[in-house]
């Protein structure tokens, strides 16, 4: 096969993959604008399902809860994660490797296991289910991602800059505030956006930790789907995917996680 043929075949293949990845999402989005309640074709435009969302109190309150939980989680996870990443970067101490390795299990262990374990534990210590528990769980899930992303940005940071600032008389806190943090800001922003996405899109852990009465949006959607599909679910799902894809596009702008430098 010559290079040109390979190029054409490759591009066609890539197009097929993208079709596979995006077509169902686009179909789902299109159906949220279809008038028929039973997804009947031909397609007839209607904004009815979005209007109905506005009067659906359960969905509105779940959406609102999901959003503010995501913001709280983002704040806590970004602050704690950035502090930890800076410490792991700046100081040498025994056990550092272990601390880094400890970030891997929360990412690699299936959320089903983590979620059920959290449920057992928080019930056992008397905290029970509910929004506070959900927040505690989400922060724990987001923390490793924030630390990994901020650490990656720190790895591009010239440590002699900190030394130079110290030589010029800056205290460690001043060094952090005026030299280190400005440099790693894109990493912090990207880590924060990822934390937001982990929380906002989180289903499994929320499912086990939230009280039936105050579910987050994904949990509400899951329970609704199991009762039966309605175009309203399409509408809210379309909104969710729009939000989470925009958040990730923003994050990609601030860091090339997985991308090339």
């Amino acid at each position: 096969m010559t290079g040109k043929v390979l190029g054409i075949v490759g591009r066609v293949y890539l197009a097929l993959i993208l079709f596979f990845l995006y077509a169902p999402i686009l179909v789902m989005a299109a159906m949220s604008f279809n008038a028929s309640e039973f997804y009947q074709l031909p397609f007839a435009y209607s904004g009815e399902w979005y209007e109905r969302l506005w009067s659906n109190r359960a969905i509105l309150s779940a959406a609102w809860r999901s959003i503010w939980i995501a913001f709280v989680v983002t704040g806590i996870a970004t602050a704690l994660g950035t502090a930890a990443a800076i410490a792991l970067f700046r100081y040498d101490f025994p056990g550092k490797k272990v601390l880094r390795a400890l970030l891997f299990p929360p990412i690699a262990i299936p959320w089903l296991i983590i979620g059920t374990a959290m449920l057992i534990f928080f019930f056992g210590i008397g905290l029970g289910r509910g929004t506070p528990t959900v927040i505690i769980g989400h922060v724990a899930l987001a923390l490793p991602y924030v630390i990994v992303i901020v650490s990656a940005r720190l790895a591009t940071f010239d440590a002699t800059l900190e030394e130079a600032a110290r030589v010029l008389g800056a205290s460690p806190w001043q060094v952090t505030k005026r030299v280190t943090v400005p440099w790693i800001l894109p990493g912090i922003v990207a880590g924060g956006l990822l934390a937001f996405a982990v929380s906002f899109d989180q289903f499994v852990v929320s499912y086990f930790l939230s009280e039936p009465g105050d579910a987050t949006l994904p949990v509400l959607i899951y329970t609704s789907i199991r009762k039966g599909f309605t175009p309203e679910i399409n509408a809210i799902s379309t909104l969710i995917i729009a939000v989470s894809m925009s958040v990730m596009l923003l994050a990609a702008r601030y860091s090339n996680f997985g991308g090339e430098r």
Binding site: I25, M28, M31, D201, S237
Partner: peptide, 16 residues
């Protein structure tokens, strides 16, 4: 990009 977006919603889209 889809990988980082809501997995529940993507499964629902396949149901549709």
């Amino acid at each position: 990009l889809p990988f980082w977006s809501n997995s529940l919603v993507r499964i629902f889209s396949w149901a549709i």
